[in-house]
Computed example of a mutant assay.
Amino acid sequence: MKLVSFRITTPVGPFTRVGAIHGQHVVDLNLAYVRWLSDQHEAQPYRLANAQVPSNMLEFLEGGLSTMAAARRAVDYAAMLGPSTKGPVGETIAHGAGDVRIIAPLPAPSSLRDFIAFEDHIAATSQKRGQPIPPEWYKAPVYYKGNHRTIIGPDEDLPWPLETTKLDYELELACVIGRTGKDVAEREAEDYIAGYTIMNDFSARDVQFQEMACRLGPAKGKDFATALGPCLVTPDEIRDLGALTMTARVNGEEWSRGRFGTIHWSFPQMIAHVSCGEMIYPGDVFGSGTVGGGCGLELDRYLKPGDVVELEIQPIGLLRTKVVGPAPRG
């Protein structure tokens, strides 16, 4: 499934719902399941659907395998009935893709960890500092904890942050955890992944490097925004994760191209490492870190007000962000 969070406007205000992309439509999973339960003559279809297929993405992920199974049943049933099918009291189940606003698939993650897992990227950034790759990097996957409260979604503007003169994008794939666990073995870790999405770990490089010179961070240099989207693709939709092509374009010009299979530390290795001695939870986001060549820092090119950044990884889709100014003077 390609899971999305989408926003609809109603006479009583806006609502955010969980959906699945099906052709040119977004299926409201909760209402599709309500319709299925109603047609099975359940006495309380709304109450059961709210428990089994919640309309909030974090609660949906917390439902685990049983919620995923119910959601698949709901999508299949809605597809069989057709896009004009309504809920028991006339609710819209299938929305035209252009009639709703797709937001970040997980607008409020439980946590955000971003790794530096591509050897080509850490080699390039270390070389810029006149240093070799730290030998410690090869001992375990390393990460920082980002601000999970500043998530933005597809086609959402990024206001120019801080007083930076070196605003950068970072081309990443992210996995989202779907099960609670602790001390997860690497061989079992894939079973804890609910799905994958595109991640743009925006960075103010000058602020970041000033912070990290003090042996801490990054913090303010990255905490202002992380883009996720456009959807959360379940693992069964991706045959070969390593074969995924990752591209970045700025104003239509390709700046970066890489392949996920060049990663050194895998998602299962990340999960095993993080869960060692501590809990992981549904809705935790693990960023892969930047693919080799996947940021302006490596290219000595930075973003400007008005730039449109597009990250693309198929079959997930396209994550587009427009940078809006003004930039600081100086």
Rank of each mutant, 00 (worst) to 15 (best):
P218F: 03
K304G: 00
P83C: 10
L303I: 11
A227M: 09
I271V: 13
E253N: 07
G294D: 02
V26H: 07
A117K: 01
K2M: 01
H121C: 11
M279E: 12
G64Q: 04
C175V: 15
L48I: 15
E278K: 14
Q24P: 01
V250Y: 10
I193R: 03
R249C: 05
S84M: 11
T197Y: 10
V34Y: 11
L31H: 01
R72C: 04
L299K: 15
P107Q: 04
V207T: 15
E42Y: 14
L244V: 03
V4W: 01
T197W: 08
T150A: 15
F202T: 02
I116T: 13
G98Y: 09
A32V: 05
Y302F: 15
P14D: 14
M270P: 04
P83A: 11
T165G: 07
H148F: 12
D99V: 00
D223C: 00
W265G: 03
P88F: 14
E91N: 08
N50I: 06
T226R: 07
T197M: 11
G96C: 03
Y169D: 02
E190L: 13
V207R: 15
W36I: 12
D300S: 14
L228F: 15
L106C: 03
P107W: 02
V89N: 13
A49M: 04
G287W: 05
